[in-house]
Design a protein around this nucleic acid. Structure first.
Length: 918
RNA sequence: GCCUGAGUGGUGGAAUGGUAGACACGAAGGACUUAAAAUCCUUUGGUCAGUGAUGGCUGUGCGGGUUCAAGUCCCGCCUCAGGUACCA
């Protein structure tokens, strides 16, 4: 009987749908398990063969857990807001919602064909008002909370107001912008407007003038993780620094907890390391430097307080507030000129150009250790956003300071014995101090401690920990995003009442900024509250909707809460999260922050959202080439191309099979190839190949639909897993897919004798049982380790063995069918029903292996001499070591290798190997 | 520069410190067939010797080391991929 995958797959996909096989509800009698995929942005191109890799892996694990008796939550949804749909809207006038819905339908169709076990009743879409109501709601909570650093928890703003009313802000330790100290009386007398301005400095969602990444081409600001090397990640447009008033999230308040949390979760070390670097904790000191002939001070952050004796100048970032304070009249023109020049350059240019630039401010500071006057410079190698935007320069021991000192001819004082600073700085944190007053003779490590103690005692500064992690810019000057639940009264932002949520995205006539430069929402009619107050015109960024979506899946239709507390107590958090590594510093930081905030509010029970995380590797494209003889329309086969002067041209991989070109298809591919001629080898045209990104322009995109049409979904699923380790990047190469398909056919064949089903109830042989149990053991351990490529091999080995034995016994085939069900669910369902079952294989009992079938009565011992294996002998498994040694030494072949010498030593590893050392 | 991975046949890849190359693709040869498809069988890291069974040498990016034994552990490099970058 032929393996008719098309019929089988359609049959079971509709069975699953009609019987709600994948619908999940809370079941207190079964332990829960939550498997999550990073939900996709539904792009216009549809899924290519790389996208489902992680989905297949998580699907296998979900089905495996279900077979083991877990109540598995495995949902899917769409990250539906995004720039491409809006860009398309700008070009065509089509509402982004229509584009998005069409794309979602396409995605859904493609996913359904692969046979995933998602509970689609739980689907979420970030652009659905029912969903983004809770995104807006969370924003209101963040607006209404501040971060108490002493207790390390978010607290209601109302509580902060109480404290201000009672004692002012002197005792408050909050994550906040610098605020001046005020008393309770001052607070009470300052009026509502001033009070709200001050509270804004404390809110977790706050509006502030900040240096933002402004992308003129996209017409919006971007978060740090949306920018790479001065270009926007989406689109690759230049990004510049600009001060703007924007909504921000105080992610930095959670920096330490985000760092500490990493130690408690099961993520790959590389991903945790990426997050640690992104958070960028550095321990150091904040020191006060007095400005000469003035009573003003400057604060600097340094991790090397021990090098203060070598500070020979100071440097300010061009954007620093200190610049205006210290610049002397004589230098004003030069400084302004420099700052203008810096502004004109994009960040990209600043990074690309390593040339030293800077200008003297005219002012001097006083080194608190030496009391000497040192000049204050302004240079763009100091960043405004990090530390205090001002540094103390130690040219002998910092390469950037060194370059600056050389350029401006400033003194360089070496502080470490034996270091040579005539050519370059000595940046290492080791050695013995010199030229360092009370620290001379100490090791660097001790000097750092001593210096910190000294500055604390003398009141020069304080010990401080700095983080690189910046607050997230949360506004976008765009249309296709969540509206803010904010209105303005007297220019002050206020939140809408929760009962007004969701605040739905209004219709507009054009998806462009207004004539006056307002964001697109400025075009909306009646964009105001009932009382006529204007609503916020910005919308939220992409990561807003994706930060808590995993919570919403638990309780997707609840209109009273983001997630019901009891429901959350059952599902808790995600046990297994599978997705791409590109979200390491964006989504995976934001959602951890968002989760911790909700945890602080007591709304959810876990402070980390994702217990275990696996990054699936990228599937790269494998491109094919034809070689055109330059100046002709003649193409030379790969191995003959060096005889001609040729040019490689990408050719559509879908008309190439095993690197052999389908010549007719090629001629019909594009009009210019219609009259192409060929130089063949062995009557074939062999194409060249290369591994590149999978993209339209390389003609190497492979669509899962095409594979499914040709081989079926089960083959696609198995083949994607068979390709290699899940976490490794690998090229998609259709060449091997036949082997996997053949395997399924072979497995299928075991159930048949000719055209009829023939399953025997005869007791299996020891050999058959061994083959089965060995496979159960291997598959189980492979699934636990996400080593799916070796699972597929193990299935192949087992089926090969059973075919050899012509095994058609129920007691073997049934457990094997259940075992393969997570990998190839359609064929497994069909075989399970052929075995006489009336229920879905999804709810079968996972087979367990029994070691007793695996015991070998005999062991093959490789006999090696000085580590080189020469021959093997077979012995009963229970032969003891001494006996093995005796037999090995007395074997007739041993003589040949000992060459008469007496072995120095004989090593016998029971059941493994014998090594005779000569 | 720094951080994290990875380098094994023609290809994808396998291997708790214990016979390197499982499994699969491809290739070559054969069986079945009028033929093709499908299926099945044999061979397949390199090299040398032998008619042959077989045997020798060599081989996991490079150079050292630890060990009875190293693809695997340690030290030093090289190459590739991803992340990050004037972070004081």
């Amino acid at each position: 009987m032929e393996y008719n995958f098309k019929e089988i797959e359609q049959k079971w996909q509709s069975y699953w749908k009609n019987n709600a096989i994948y619908h999940v509800e809370i079941d207190n009698n079964r332990p829960k398990y939550y498997v999550l995929d990073m939900f996709p942005y539904p792009s216009g191109a549809g899924l290519h063969v790389g996208h489902p890799l992680g989905y297949i892996a998580s699907d296998i694990f979900s089905r495996y857990k279900r077979l083991q008796g877990f109540n598995v939550l495995h949902p899917m949804g769409y990250d539906a807001y995004g720039l491409p749909a809006e860009q398309y809207a700008i070009q065509t006038g089509q509402h982004p919602e229509i584009t998005t819905f069409n794309n979602i339908n396409r995605y859904r169709e493609q996913m359904d064909k692969i046979g995933f076990c998602y509970d689609w009743k739980r689907e979420v879409r970030t652009c659905d008002p029912e969903y983004y109501k809770w995104t807006q709601w969370a924003f209101i909570q963040m607006f209404d909370h501040w971060y108490n650093k002493k207790e390390d928890i978010a607290r209601p703003i109302s509580q902060l107001i109480e404290i201000f009313n009672e004692q002012g802000n002197a005792q408050v330790t909050a994550a906040s912008a610098d605020t001046t100290i005020f008393t309770a009386d001052e607070w009470k007398n300052m009026g509502e407007k001033k009070q709200r301005d001050i509270l804004m400095n404390y809110r977790i969602a706050y509006k502030a003038d900040t240096m933002v990444n402004w992308c003129p081409k996209l017409g919006t600001v971007l978060a740090n993780d949306e920018v790479s090397e001065g270009l926007s990640i989406r689109g690759g447009y230049p990004v510049e620094q600009k001060v703007m008033s924007q909504w921000c999230l105080r992610v930095s308040a959670y920096a330490q907890r985000l760092l500490d949390g990493l130690d408690k979760i099961d993520w790959t070390e590389s991903l945790k390391e990426t997050q640690r670097n992104w958070i960028g904790r550095s321990e150091g000191a904040e020191m006060k430097f007095k400005i000469a002939n003035s009573d003003k001070y400057m604060n600097v952050f340094t991790t090397r307080a021990d090098t203060t004796f070598g500070v020979t100048f100071m440097v300010l970032a061009p954007e620093s507030e200190y610049v205006a304070e210290v610049t002397t009249d004589e230098q004003k023109n030069a400084v302004n000129e420099y700052i203008d020049a810096v502004k004109r350059r994009t960040e990209r240019e600043r990074i690309a150009d390593k040339k030293v630039t800077g200008v003297f401010s005219g002012a001097y500071a006083i080194n608190p250790f030496t009391n000497e006057q040192i000049p204050i410079f302004i240079s763009d190698y100091v960043l405004a956003g990090y530390g205090t935007g001002a540094i103390m320069a130690v040219p002998a021991h910092d390469s950037r300071d060194y370059a600056f000192a050389k350029h401006f001819n400033l003194p360089i004082i070496p502080l470490i014995e034996g270091c040579d600073v005539s050519k370059e700085s000595y940046d290492a944190k080791e050695g013995i101090m010199m030229n360092s007053g009370f620290m001379t003779g100490l090791s660097v490590k001790d000097a750092i401690t001593t210096a910190k103690k000294y500055i604390t005692e003398k009141g020069i500064g304080k010990v401080k920990i700095n983080y690189r992690l910046r607050d997230a810019i949360f506004s976008r000057q765009r249309y296709w995003g969540e509206p803010f639940p904010i209105y303005y009264k007297d220019g002050q932002p206020y939140t809408l009442d929760e009962t007004c949520l969701p605040l739905e995205l209004p219709e507009i006539d054009k998806y462009l900024p207004t004539e006056t430069g307002e964001p697109p929402l400025g075009r909306a009619k009646n964009w105001q509250t009932k009382d006529g107050y204007p609503l916020e015109l910005n919308t939220m960024p992409g990561f807003a909707g994706s930060s808590a979506y995993y919570l919403r899946y638990m309780d997707p239709h609840n209109d009273k809460a983001l997630v019901n507390k009891d429901v959350n107590l059952y599902w808790k958090n995600v046990d297994l999260y599978i997705g791409g590594t590109e979200h390491a510093t964006g989504h995976l930081i934001y959602s951890r922050f968002w989760n911790k905030f909700l945890f602080d509010l007591g709304l959810i029970c876990k402070d980390e959202p994702f217990e275990k995380l696996i990054n699936q590797g990228m599937i790269q494209g494998r491109s094919n080439f034809v070689y055109r003889i330059i100046g002709t329309n003649k193409y030379v086969s790969y191995n003959l191309k060096d005889k001609y002067e040729t040019q490689g041209i990408h050719v559509n991989v879908n008309i190439v099979s095993n690197d052999i070109l389908d010549i007719e298809a090629f001629k019909n591919w594009m009009p210019e190839y219609k009259d192409a001629e060929f130089v063949l080898e062995d009557g074939k045209y062999i194409c060249g190949w290369a591994v590149e990104k999978m993209s339209k322009s390389m003609f190497n995109v492979v669509n899962p639909d095409d594979i499914i049409k040709k081989y079926g979904a089960d083959t696609l699923r198995l083949y994607e897993m068979f390709l290699g380790p899940l976490e490794q990047s690998k090229p998609w190469d259709t060449n091997g897919i036949d082997g996997v398909h053949r395997f399924l056919k072979k497995f299928w064949g075991l159930f048949f004798n000719g055209e009829s089903v023939a399953i025997s109830d005869v007791e299996p042989t020891a050999e058959e049982l061994k083959s089965l149990h060995k496979t159960i053991k291997k598959i189980t351990s492979d699934i636990e380790h996400f080593s799916y490529n070796t699972s597929v091999s193990a299935f192949m080995i087992c089926v090969n063995e059973l075919s050899q034995m012509k095994c058609n016994k129920r007691m073997i085939l049934e457990p094997l069918t259940i075992l393969i069900a997570p990998f190839a669910p359609h064929i497994a369902e069909e075989m399970y029903s052929m075995l006489g079952h009336k229920t879905s294989v999804c709810d079968a009992k996972y087979p367990e292996y029994d070691d007793k079938f695996l015991i070998e009565s005999k062991v093959k011992y490789p006999i090696s001499f000085n580590g080189k294996v020469r021959f093997t002998i077979e012995l009963p498994a229970d032969t003891d070591k001494a006996e093995v040694e005796r037999i090995a030494l007395s074997d007739s072949q041993t003589e040949k290798y000992t060459e008469g010498k007496t072995p120095k030593k004989v090593i016998v590893v029971s059941g493994k190997i014998v090594n005779i050392v000569l």
